[in-house]
Structures are given as structure tokens and as C-alpha cells.
Design a protein around this nucleic acid. Structure first.
Lengths: 340, 340
DNA sequence: TTGTACGCGTTATCAC
DNA sequence: GTGATAACGCGTACAA
């Protein structure tokens, strides 16, 4: 297939309207005075030729590409896709385009993508769920001195970077307090294998239970081998059915994400355990699956859109150099009480 | 915040290694013979300076950006995000980066984004779910003469463009035949307001029912005001509860997407109608929600990853001009029989 | 095997 | 108000 029709350049416009390319440039950018009649002639030529500036050439000299890179472990994750939507939505209005980069959730992938984006002269990089290893190794601290950088989650104390983070502490507390208020004393906790956010939540859970003098026995703590995907649903379901096939005094459980909570819900249904009568379940993330389950899931809302919005806003600030310090912006959580 | 560290250019490398930029360029691209010792000196300088070619400058002269634009109505849609993942995954391996463009599902958004991508000299554009209006108006036929273009779905007869499409016909037939084989005679059909794919499915449904001499009465045909989002779940649920609160002879229903099917399932549960005992439900799309419902949803699998893969492959073909004709590539469907 | 010089399409800096 | 001309960083005839 041949795609030969060449685009008109600024020279073509200049030739047709009988002026220099300098004047054409001025008309386009409207940054210097140009005679009204000349301007009209130029605009007519632009129209006639269907001329559009080549942004590559413009970027080369301006050293700005109006382009932002977004790094994300995987796009089809419900949590990530909503964040991306928000970031891109915000930046799109400001005439930025975004490069979508899937890293596969491993450090090498992130480094490779960052390299690729730097070579393409992006104006900034947003990393969703950056690898802890790269944060601690100083990789991102080095990067943020070269280019505007915003990290979403993955916060670590003392790292000189710009962070937008969820308030995992508050979210976990809200959920647990809700359960205690409902009269629950035997509250379980379900987490995935390794993730910074699971660690924070677990620490918070243990802390909370101790403070309220509620017991935590081995039966209360679930560590699933999986993480945040479909497999997790099955694993969670099995865990719950197994637990209740033995005997347990557990009457409520806090799950680290909605997949786990759905799994727990399905497990309870399978063994005829009523929810929330026999078992109260609280999820985390407020993804769409929490709204379509029956009954709909009580869950902690991260406000993912706000997270993305905040990241995009911060990015624009950094680009326009309005801010000279590293900020940590915390997005609040809300407990969404539904039917479980 | 100041990001001042300037990147080394090809000139810096040339100066440090005591050769001309031409030689450096040859070392980088490995396209002309260079003395082994010279090459070594250059490579050392590259290493020492941390030099990386500026792809903007390279693109400007080569007229290739290694960049593809992906247009999509909205990224958080389960169907779209899986397609995007596949497209980007495939192209990423070939060192392409992708611009993610959300169009909002309206013609103006699509035109604007296409314009933006052309100005950025992308090597090709993939449009997921293109607006019918722009297909019929000749917009995309014109575009495909200027740049490699692949349309995913939205196929219309006689349009000279490259399409990758789902076999809606086969998918619908598979689902209906399954129901008939189960002995169902009163089969309903649920669709959304306006979409080409709903139209095809409905036509197929009507055709099938007529061929099998099965009746279609007004109670069998649901047209929801919504489409493919959370609201649809509620609407579908209400439709089903209302229908069965009157009397109906319907024993099975084919839904145009999984959201509708989940809604129908929730509705049935609410009124104590057993699934599939009292009502069989078949969804469409095989999104993740069909796997986590209880019971899991019987649904038609589109093979979204294959759809994206095929689009990416076709794009690469077009770019390398291996193909001179417009092709329509049809991706097969499979009925996934689960619990409804 | 290597270097010079031009061009890619634009904006910025001078002159006039 | 307007126009040459030099950048931006790179690839590549052409010449040596």
C-alpha cells in the first residue's frame, strides 16, 4: 500500500502567499505583529493547502513535545485503567498526548520504558505503581532531577520524588471501625503475597485489633498466593469455604481488594452462609465489580480518578516550574457501604 | 523545579572520540564499514557520555517515528482495555510506542485525535470501534490513503479500508443454537440503544428465530436505553424483574454484552428465579465479570486479544508495504458454556 | 575508511 | 512589518 501524498510545509505556504516562512510562522503562532492583509493571504494559503505544522520539527527546536509518558504494570487491571483514563483525560484537554507503556510490573520493564521515553523527549513521566526496588535504589531520585516525574503510590519515607498516594491507613481504619461499630469482634484479614500496600494494610489491621483488644488468631489472617487478578477470586473463594468447613468464630473480613472480596462472597454463597448475616465482607478499591455483585459489595473507595487527576495536575505544575519542592499528595478514601 | 542537565549529542561524542559525526552515526546505526579501533573509541565515548540518539531528530529526517496512535472511545471499558493491551503488547516488542487517545465515542473526538496524530507524524493509526458516521462519510477512506490505518469493528460493506472484525453472526448463532439444543423455544433478546453490533445481532436473532419457526413477541425483545456500562446492569435487572412480575413464557435470553447478562442474572436472583433452571442467560464478550459472577456466566468469547494482535500484525504489514489491498480479517468466536 | 556539507520543517535572532 | 539566516540533532549523498 502506498501512502505518498506529501504534506504541505511552511515553505509551500510561504510560496503560495508570496511571503517568507518567517511571516508564515508568525501568523501560525500569533506571536509577532503581522499586517492584517498579509495575515489574511497567509491564512487563505494555509486553508487551501491544508497545511498543518509538523510538530516533530517544532519540538526539536522548542525542546518541548507536548507529550507525557505513562508507565503502568498492565493496562487491563481495573484499578490502573481508571487512573490512566483520568491522567490522559486531564492532559488531553491541555493538548498533551500520552504514551502508554506497559512494564509488566518488573523493574527491567520500567527502566527500559523510561529510557525509551527519554529518547523520545517526553515532557514528563508518570509512573503508576513503581517498583519498590527502583525507588530504593535511587533510580527514580536520579530520574526526577532530569525530567518532571510523578509517582503514583509506592511511597517510601525519605525519597526525594513527587508522590500521589492513597491513604491506605485511613481506608483500612474506616473499614475496621465500621465493622466494630456493627458489633463485630472476630474480624479476619485477607491479603495477597507481596505488595507494599498489603503490608501497610496488614500493619494497620494488627495495630487496630490490638488497640481494640480484639484477638487475631491464625484463622483470621489469610495470605493468598495471588494478587489482584481473576485467579485471586478463586483462591479467596476456596479459602473461605475451607475455613468455614472447619469451625471458626469469624463474623467479618476485610479484604485487600475487590477481587478477594468477590471471591469471599462467592465462597460464602456456595456454602450457604448468608452475607452479611453470617459474614460481613468489606472489599477495597471500589472497582466496578463491587457494584455489580449481588449483593453489591461494601468497599473502600480510593477515588482513582482523583488520584489520576492529581497526578496530571502535579505534572503540569512541574513542567511549568511552579513548584521547587518534592511533594507528597495524599488522596482520601471513603467507605462505601453497600450490601455486604 | 529545574531540570537542566543537558543530554549529550552526536557532536559531543564526535568531539570526544576525535572523529566526525558521520562516523559516530555509522557506529550507531551499523550501516557502513567503520574501522574496528575507531568503532571502539566511539563506543567508549558513547558509554562515557551516556549518549543516546535523539529520536525526534532521527524521525524528522527518516520520516518514521516508530509511533502508532490508538483511538478508542474510552479506555476503562473492559472490552477495549483488553484490545489495547494486545495491540500495545505486540507493537511494544517491535520497539513501537503507542499514543493512547480517548475519543469519548463521538465523531468530533475521533477527527480531532486523528488530526493530532497526523501532526505528530505517527507511522499508523488503529481505531477501535470507529464511528459509523465517519466510515460512511468517507473520512476513513480518505485517511487510509494518507497513512496506514486499521479499523477494529465498525465494518461496512464496500468501504475501502482495512478491517479487523468480530464474527458477530457466528457468535450469535452459536449462542442461539446452544439454547435451542437445550430445548428452549421461548428465547428473548436484549440489546442497547444504538450500535452497529447490536443491529447485526438483532437481525441475526430475528432471522434465526424465523428459520426455526420460533415466535418472537414484544415481550421477547428488550431495547435498553443504555449501552455498555454500569448503568446498563441496573437497567437490565429492572427489565427482567418487571417482565417476570407480569407473566411470560420466556425461558432463555441472549444478551448483547456481559453487563446486560449480569443485570439479568441479578434480576432473576432478586425475584427468586433460578438460573439456569428457570431462566437461561447467555452473555456476550467474555469479559472478566462473566467469570466472577455466581454462577459464572455462559457467554460468547470474542477473543479480544486476538483481535488486537491481528490489528497490530496488519498494521506492521501495511507499514512495510507488504500488502497492496484492503483486507477484512474476521476473528472467530467461541461459546463459553459456564453456569447460566 | 573517513569527512564535508546539505536537508528534514520548524522557531529564534538579527537585521532592515 | 518583514525577511535572511542560523539553529535544533540527526542521516546521508558526495567527495576524498
Amino acid at each position: 500500500m502506498i501512502h505518498s501524498e506529501k504534506r504541505a510545509t511552511i515553505h509551500d505556504v510561504a510560496a503560495m502567499s508570496g511571503v517568507s516562512i518567517t511571516t508564515v510562522s508568525r501568523v501560525i503562532n500569533d506571536n509577532y505583529p503581522v499586517n492584517v492583509v498579509t495575515k489574511k493571504r497567509v491564512n487563505e494559503a494555509i486553508e487551501a493547502l491544508g497545511y498543518r505544522p509538523n510538530l516533530l520539527a517544532r519540538s526539536l527546536i522548542r525542546d518541548k513535545t507536548q507529550t507525557i509518558g505513562i508507565l503502568v504494570p498492565s493496562i487491563e487491571n481495573l484499578f490502573f485503567s481508571e487512573v490512566i483514563k483520568a491522567i490522559d483525560g486531564y492532559l488531553s484537554n491541555l493538548d498533551y498526548r500520552t504514551f502508554l507503556c506497559q512494564t509488566g510490573g518488573n523493574p527491567l520493564g520500567e527502566e527500559t520504558m523510561v529510557d525509551s521515553l527519554l529518547n523520545r523527549s517526553v515532557d514528563g513521566i508518570v509512573v503508576v505503581d513503581p517498583r519498590t526496588k527502583l525507588i530504593k535504589s535511587g533510580f527514580y531520585e536520579g530520574l526526577t532531577r532530569r525530567i518532571p516525574l510523578v509517582l503514583i503510590n509506592g511511597y517510601n519515607q525519605g525519597i526525594r520524588c513527587n508522590f500521589i498516594i492513597n491513604n491506605e491507613l485511613a481506608g483500612t481504619t474506616q473499614a475496621l471501625e465500621h465493622l466494630v461499630l456493627q458489633g463485630h469482634k472476630h474480624i479476619g484479614f485477607m491479603r495477597g503475597k507481596k505488595s507494599y500496600s498489603y503490608d501497610i494494610k496488614e500493619a494497620m489491621y494488627v495495630d487496630f485489633m490490638n488497640k481494640h483488644q480484639l484477638e487475631i488468631d491464625d484463622m483470621h489472617l489469610f495470605q493468598l498466593p495471588g494478587g489482584n487478578d481473576l485467579e485471586t477470586v478463586k483462591l479467596a473463594k476456596e479459602s473461605i469455604t475451607q475455613l468455614f468447613s472447619n469451625s471458626t468464630n469469624m463474623t467479618a473480613i476485610l479484604c485487600c481488594n475487590d477481587f478477594m472480596a468477590i471471591g469471599a462472597l462467592n465462597g460464602a454463597k456456595t456454602i450457604g452462609l448468608s452475607v452479611p448475616g453470617g459474614l460481613s465482607i468489606i472489599g477495597y478499591d471500589n472497582t466496578l465489580i463491587s457494584q455489580i455483585s449481588e449483593p453489591p459489595l461494601t468497599t473502600v473507595d480510593h477515588h482513582m480518578s482523583e488520584l489520576g487527576d492529581a497526578a496530571a495536575r502535579r505534572m503540569v505544575e512541574l513542567i511549568s516550574s511552579k513548584s521547587a519542592e518534592y511533594k507528597k499528595i495524599v488522596i482520601n478514601t471513603d467507605l462505601i457501604v453497600r450490601g455486604t
